[in-house]
Amino acid sequence: MKESDLMLRHPLAAYLRQERMPHIWCEGCGNGVLLNSFFEALDKLKLDLDKVVVVSGIGCIGRAAGYVNVDSFHTTHGRAIPFATGVKLANPELEVVVISGDGDLFAIGGNHFIHAARRNVDIKVICANNFNYGMTGGQYGPTTPLGSWTTTTPYGSIEHPFNLVHLAAASGAVYVARWTTLQVRKLTDSIKKALGKEGFSFVEVISPCPEIYDRYNKLGTAVEVMKWFKLISQTQHGCTPENAEISKRQIIIGEFVDIKKPSYGRLLREMTTRVKESFQEKKAK
């Protein structure tokens, strides 16, 4: 059987732009797992795919927008979130999902992330965190663990990394979760839940980078990294995000924030209705 036939028979084939395959990702990369979980979440929710928009920034996972069979936009580096904000506010009917990487969302795009979370804009952000800039060949980034090796930390990183779930929670996200690419079902459930929430939701996906980061740091093959994820992942739902550690000893996974708060879109609609009513009254006089 040909590879293309197999693809057509895949239950989630309809979600993928098959004519864009093969993708650019390395063997063993976690991006495919992330995308699969996203598709499965869409499938379970039976969302109208004509009303889903995927926005990404620049980087390996940035190419995801080109692979999904929905309206999609591949923005400039770091700007997926403000672009998505414009889309969502201009057409609230659309389900707007940002899929991007740790460097894109938290270094060059960090300011947009915290402000979108603060406003509680009704967008969902899924971040593939592979601890480095893979697309450019493995430089250190805002999530690279202290002491790690990358091409620009040849003596080990001397920068403290962000704890993304802590940052998201502190900025005002209504839903915050973290999984590794090993916990596919949990990840899918989380994405599903994020899609159903009103407001800014954030799902961090710890993802292997076997060709670059994992190799520099001698973490082994993709399979070995997945085994390592299994060994050190610890589910702690409701853990204070500040304490949701990522280290060589353990990765705390789970749902850390799940709260209710009116979204920017709701407040905007309420305000607009109020203004329009008084405007109509003025007009009638």
């Binding site: 926005v55 936009f73 923005t75 400039t76 770091g78 700007r79 979130i81 403000p82 672009f83 998505a84 904000t85 414009g86 889309v87 969502k88 506010l89 201009a90 057409n91 659309l94 300011n111 947009h112 402000h115 905007l268 607009t272």
Partner: peptide, 22 residues
Amino acid sequence: VYIQMEDEIGSIAAVIGASYTG
């Protein structure tokens, strides 16, 4: 819709996004 973004980079990004919705 009026939105005050966090900077001009975000402003133009949001405007492009809005334009793509028509």
